[in-house]
């Protein structure tokens, strides 16, 4: 079951990369986080780790509901440009995305085989994909979505490769994430939403 959710996670991320409208991008991010949370839950059930269950629930609440909502709210409030065309052409992305996936599998090849080997490569791939998501948009909101996807990739890695980080650290990461959103608010408050 985890495999399925992770697959969905990746595909929603890739779809998000090709999106050209801001609100839809935010929506895709919410879906993306949702699948991440589901994957985490199924994994938590599999290894019976309560801590991971909690963080999965937190993900569900925070990343797939609260943060997308806040972002949407900000976008409306600050009248962000809603048409976001990626600066990288689709033709290139068609080459780039598979190349990244192939590269990460190649990169991970020397690792001593374990259950998580493939997940690690997928996590690294989603890291790179999120980076591309950040690169391809000049819009600040889209960049923030990219950053949040990056966070998701981290969570994916933590969840699959290490069977969950120590709880304290996970909580710390969430706190920082919230802090980041607060800062974002402050930054948006002033002026232009373009970088």
């Amino acid at each position: 079951m985890t495999n399925f959710f992770i697959g969905m996670f990746l595909s929603t991320l890739i779809t998000a990369m090709l999106t050209t409208r801001l609100y839809r991008l935010i929506a895709w991010y919410a879906v993306n986080s949702l699948f991440l949370a589901l994957a985490a839950m199924s994994e938590a059930v599999r290894i019976q780790d309560e801590a991971m269950l909690i963080s999965a629930l937190l993900t569900l609440v925070l990343k797939s509901a609260l943060i997308p909502y806040l972002l949407k709210h900000f976008a409306v409030k600050f009248q962000a440009e809603r048409n976001i065309t990626p600066s990288i052409k689709v033709q290139y992305l068609i080459i780039l995305i598979p190349a990244i996936l192939v590269f990460t599998f190649y990169l991970i090849d020397p690792i001593i085989a374990g259950a998580a080997k493939n997940y690690i490569s997928l996590a690294i791939a989603s890291l790179f994909l999120s980076l591309v998501l950040m690169i391809e948009h000049r819009n600040v909101f889209a960049k923030v979505i990219g950053f949040l996807s990056l966070e998701n990739a981290l969570f994916l890695l933590a969840m699959t490769a290490t069977e969950g980080m120590p709880m304290l650290i996970e909580l710390g990461i969430f706190v920082d994430l919230l802090m980041a959103v607060v800062i974002l608010n402050l930054l948006f408050k002033k002026e232009a939403s373009h970088v």
Partner: peptide
Amino acid sequence: RYGAIIFNLMLSVLF
């Protein structure tokens, strides 16, 4: 293009 540069940097280091 800081993001792009970091991307390529990471890529080359991993390579």
